[in-house]
Design a protein around this nucleic acid. Structure first.
Lengths: 336, 336
DNA sequence: AAATTGCGCTAAAAGGTTTTATTTACTAAT
DNA sequence: ATTAGTAAATAAAACCTTTTAGCGCAATTT
């Protein structure tokens, strides 16, 4: 790691022009009809001295940075964290790098981050869009920067998108609860217009309708504190004498569990949307709707890379199936 | 987000030179004796048209990228994840960006990542060094790139470092177990030469000596699968009829808990090093040694920024106290 | 014989900044 | 009247690549 060696040093050392070296290094030797002998000579020398081009200069010239921006809701949520990790290692193989930030569902922060990444000339974006980010995404598209949304999308906007089948996931979970014999099944969600939340609601409602059951829905403010959430969940579950609850996110489920500890009530049968280390360990372990994290990450990257290479034009929307992982928290109800 | 406006556009529009604009934008107006009138005129115009300099060109010229490399053991471990998040938002305020990668304790991967970040000319590093990374870190230092290590360090290398007082943390935890009346207290660690592990071992051993108790130590292979870890933990705890265990990391503790579920044995009193969402929720909740995450993050950034500004010369080593968070898993032992 | 094509390579421009060295137009001092 | 000094601004080099346009020559075609 001493003094950097430049492309001009190579040219000088071999007595040829910088252009030639550049062509060879960028795999344009054939195209530019550089002789094989020279190509080999250059390549050998480059390897010998361990030349690495200056990425900054390269980016400045080409306009490509080989960096992708990942705008995520919350990196400390294992669902997003795991997706981020998978994305990171996938793009790494392709020579791209990730630079990421969490928005915590704050639109203003999201806008600012996107602007910053844009200023830094990232080549493309993967975004979990918060409510109100529609215009910003549209602007990116108009600037011809590839954007792939995930987890949720904007129905009125033609964008690439990868996500889970939230409707089906919630529907299956709810149906499972019905089948197990539960009669008072509640649904906990967020005050949010995000599509994934709506779809989960609809899945729950549809299953309830199919089973001719009464619905109980409690929404929690997105910026509610943990204590506020716990209190309203306690009230919701106890006052309605629910015998089962479907939580629309893993952290809502965790708030529910904390509430049952704090207020000392027995948590009824429950299912959480998105898995979490906790859920496997608890006694009883918690049934979850699990999103296909690996497939989501793979598809996100694939679509984005294809876009970057200009290989697709029509927008792609991918909806992947969820899996219901049945654990102890939803044992068949014993009717008294 | 339309056509980029350049510094030359501004110069042309105002009928002055590019140099002048550059000086003013870089707060050198005073130093370069640019008149206040002109300074104001330029600043106003720049704000009006919303000019943002091209960061790539800037970096190419100055050699500074305003990007910091964060090389971390595992972003999906909440201890590291939270530190990463804190670091991210702290440096953000200072105009720096983070680009991060997880090494999963693989030296070769770590070397590769550091090389890559180096090639991308990051301005500085924060690293949780894996075993064997010593030479690489030394090379960075010789290249005059600021490096701050955390969580562990190399005793033979003069480097900046921020970490917790692992000895004291393990000592306090073990002493607590002794005080509660436990007699067969085991310690679970890793086959690793990393300093934080050694210090924790020593803390445990010292407390055992002080209490004139027999020691039980089980180490787990760093690259062991979850199943392997679970099996050896089961054997360790049951065959030795331990009545208490100190786990040297949170994920070892989680493996232990999983093992107790899988092999259906009762987990004795236990303490984990590093907190985790799970630990608060379990029944009983788990006592932990908690590292001062916020302080660690703050100090890491502070030291790195001071280095970047060339404001410190001597290396700094900061050791911050741990806190023992006593929960239900270490109730006083009832002697039979 | 003149015009075209192909080959193997290269000079120079472009990308957008920062910074060094210099110029210009003054005023003050000798 | 000349010199020295200073304030205010600038031209051009530098950072390191990629890419466009083109050169000189030989072989082929018209």
């Amino acid at each position: 790691m001493k003094k950097r060696i430049l492309i001009s040093d190579i040219a000088k050392a071999l007595g040829i022009s910088v252009t030639t070296v550049s062509f060879i290094l960028n795999d344009k030797a054939k195209e530019k009809r550089i002789s094989e002998a020279l190509t080999k000579r250059v390549l050998d020398y480059v390897k010998k001295v361990g030349y690495k081009p200056n990425e900054l200069a390269k980016s400045l010239r080409t306009g490509k940075t080989k960096i992708l921006g990942l705008i995520i809701e919350d990196i400390s949520n294992p669902f997003f964290g795991n997706i981020a990790r998978l994305i990171e290692s996938k793009v790494y193989e392709q020579g791209y790098r990730i630079i990421y930030c969490s928005t915590n569902n704050d639109v203003e922060k999201a806008k600012e981050l996107i602007q910053m990444f844009y200023d830094r000339q990232v080549d493309g974006f993967i975004i979990t869009p918060s409510d109100g980010l529609e215009d910003t995404v549209k602007q990116l598209q108009q600037s011809n920067i590839p954007v792939v949304l995930f987890d949720r999308y904007f129905p009125e906007l033609e964008t690439d998108y990868v996500g889970a089948d939230n409707f089906q996931g919630a529907f299956d979970a709810t149906s499972h609860l019905c089948l197990q014999g539960y009669k008072r099944i509640g649904f906990v969600s967020l005050y949010s217009d995000q599509t994934q939340m709506k779809e989960r609601s609809e899945g729950y409602l549809k299953a309830m309708d199919n089973n001719k059951q009464q619905s109980f829905i409690q929404k929690v403010q997105m910026d509610a504190s943990d204590d506020e959430a716990m209190e309203s969940l306690h009230d919701f579950i106890c006052e309605n004498r629910l015998d089962a609850v479907l939580f629309s996110t893993n952290y809502l489920a965790i708030s529910g569990l904390k509430a049952s500890k704090k207020y000392n009530f027995v948590m009824p049968a429950m299912i959480a949307f998105d898995d979490h280390t906790v859920f496997k360990l608890l006694e009883p372990s918690i049934t979850v709707v699990s999103q296909p994290i690996k497939e989501i990450a793979e598809n996100l990257i694939n679509i984005l890379l294809l876009r970057l290479q200009g290989k697709i034009k029509a927008t792609r929307k991918m909806v992947l199936p969820c899996e219901l992982k049945i654990r102890e928290s939803t044992k068949a109800k014993v009717t008294l």
